[in-house]
Design a protein around this nucleic acid. Structure first.
Length: 471
RNA sequence: GUCCCGUUCGUUCAGCGGUUAGGACUCAGGAUUUUCAUUCCUGCAACAGGGGUUCGAUUCCCCUACGGGAUACCA
């Protein structure tokens, strides 16, 4: 049977990087197995509706190149892909459960439930529904349903052990006594995650459920539901969580968690995917840079690690820098131009300036700062730089430099090289004492991109003007 | 409280009964470069603790500690 995986986020308004990794693993595994990857929107919680969230979700996935084969906008015979539009299916299936006595209406108030929980906690007992409405007769239940609010609960086993195999966790055992009579249908008539998830996965033909570790304790409920329906359960793979530097669950409070945040900070989709894919799994070997195709080729679902991984952006920075350095020149130039911000650069010299900083970027967002050496005025030299300017040799270099440059019509990178050669011959100064004063004289700074680029960018007159100040 | 899951350098990932415990990032030092960056080389740095099993445990089992998750009419 062909593999079908799915990414099933609830539309919260942004894509969490942890979700992105889950989506990535589902996508990669499906592609590798020659299977199908589907996107399903889990929007059964009416209270959590966020305007524009679906558009945002779709756009984030598209930007990162995680392409689904079926989903919103790509409907097929399994559609709809919004859970909020599938209520007929859920109702139909729940009725079966009710008729077979595997689910029941519960009329308990939320106040009673809360009280119950507090009592159980106080007595150091496991918390959970006590089954008060479990044995109400169908007749009485039907009657009360006409006037009272209710939810529908699953009648889960009360004793024994639920044992199952997880691709990541291997063998897991959970006692049924720990499993609550899960609410399947809320009082507003919408299904809970547990119900909708199982029904959808079944009807959509999902073969592998790859999702976050937070779902592991719910697996018995899901397995039992498959059982009640007489369906074959998919294989499960519960991924380790992404963590904050203090090892708590990665959260907004301790930094950016949305994919779009990182895109806005100038990280490339390729680097972000590469980085995320290697958090929890690694093909081994020296190389850490993998294109999507390479990830698909080398991914091994059986080698996903069990422990949570800290989302440390240091490595992301390095990785992103690698992607920028190795980026095709044309692509780089197009992308880099989007990040100029307020910096005003002469159009005819823009490419020169951008190429000069290509190898020094960690993210695109650094571009304005990095190319400001071209566009800005010279900064005030630091002490060490000033000392350099006061050297006797510097005076000779500057005079010779101005003299040579004055004779030229224009000043290109190559002209500059020739000039420097001549200055060196004439003054006898070479090495650091030759080059550094020119750099400082022009920019005021001791560091920066290759001098030739700067010289060419500034042009003949500006060169003369800036150097002359120190003669 | 109860249950589940986890624990190898600071971070990340290898290792799957016998290894000088390996790679990558970070950091430090060096080489190259007119500077910074790049690139290259070198170095620092880890098996949470305690019991077993075994001729031999980082690898298998148990306990403890620590961390995380779940415990919702949220997903």
């Amino acid at each position: 049977m062909s593999v079908v995986t799915r990414f099933a986020p609830s539309p919260t308004g942004y894509v969490h990087v942890g979700s992105q990794r889950t989506a990535l693993y589902n996508y990669i595994f499906a592609r590798q197995q020659g299977g199908k990857f589907i996107l399903r929107v889990e929007d059964t919680d009416q209270n959590r509706y966020v305007e524009g969230a679906v558009e945002n979700l779709l756009s984030s996935l598209e930007q990162l190149g995680v392409e689904f084969d079926a989903g919103p906008g790509k409907e097929d015979d399994k559609a709809p892909y919004f859970q909020s539009e599938r209520n007929d299916i859920y109702n139909r299936e729940v009725k079966k459960l009710m008729d077979e006595g595997k689910a029941y209406r519960c009329f308990c108030s939320s106040e009673r439930l809360e009280e119950l929980r507090n009592e159980q906690m106080a007595k150091k007992l496991p918390t959970g529904y006590d089954g008060k409405c479990r044995n109400i007769s169908r007749e009485e239940s039907d009657e009360r349903a006409k006037t009272e609010k209710f939810v529908i609960r699953l009648k889960t086993p009360t004793e024994g052990l639920c044992e199952f195999r997880d691709i990541v966790r291997r063998d897991v055992k959970i006692a049924w006594s720990q499993v609550d009579d899960q609410v399947l249908v809320k009082s507003d008539g919408f299904p809970t995650y547990h119900l909708a998830n199982v029904i959808d996965d079944h009807y959509m033909g999902v073969t592998h459920v790859i999702r976050g570790e937070e779902w592991l304790p719910s697996v018995p409920k899901h397995l039992y539901l498959y059982d009640c329906f007489g369906w074959k359960a998919p294989q499960m793979a519960h991924l380790p969580l992404l963590l904050n530097p203090d090892r708590s669950k990665l959260s907004k409070r301790q930094g950016d968690v949305a994919v779009e945040d990182y895109l806005k900070k100038g990280y490339t989709p390729e680097a972000l995917n590469n980085f995320l894919a290697l958090l929890g799994w690694n093909p081994g070997g020296k190389n850490e840079i993998y294109s999507m195709d390479e990830l698909i080729a080398s991914f091994d679902i059986n080698k996903i690690s069990k422990a949570g991984a800290v989302f440390d952006t240091k490595k992301l920075d390095w990785m992103n820098g690698q992607y920028i350095k190795n980026m095709d020149v044309d692509k780089y130039l197009v992308e880099a131009r989007k990040w100029l911000g307020d910096v005003k650069v002469k159009e005819d010299k823009l490419n020169t300036a951008l190429m000069a900083v290509k190898t020094s970027l960690a993210t695109f967002k650094e571009i304005p700062e990095k190319i400001s050496v071209f566009t800005g005025e010279a900064v005030e030299p630091v002490v060490e730089a000033k000392e350099m300017l006061e050297l006797d040799s510097t005076k000779a270099v500057f005079e010779a430099y101005v003299e040579k440059v004055s004779k030229l019509d224009k000043l290109t990178v190559n002209d500059f090289k020739v000039v420097m050669k001549e200055v060196q011959t004439e003054t006898g100064v070479k090495g650091k004492n030759l080059w550094m004063p020119i750099r400082i004289g022009l920019t005021g700074d001791m560091h920066g991109p290759e001098l030739g680029y700067i010289v060419e960018y500034l042009g003949k007159h500006e060169n003369i003007k800036r150097i002359s100040r120190y003669i």
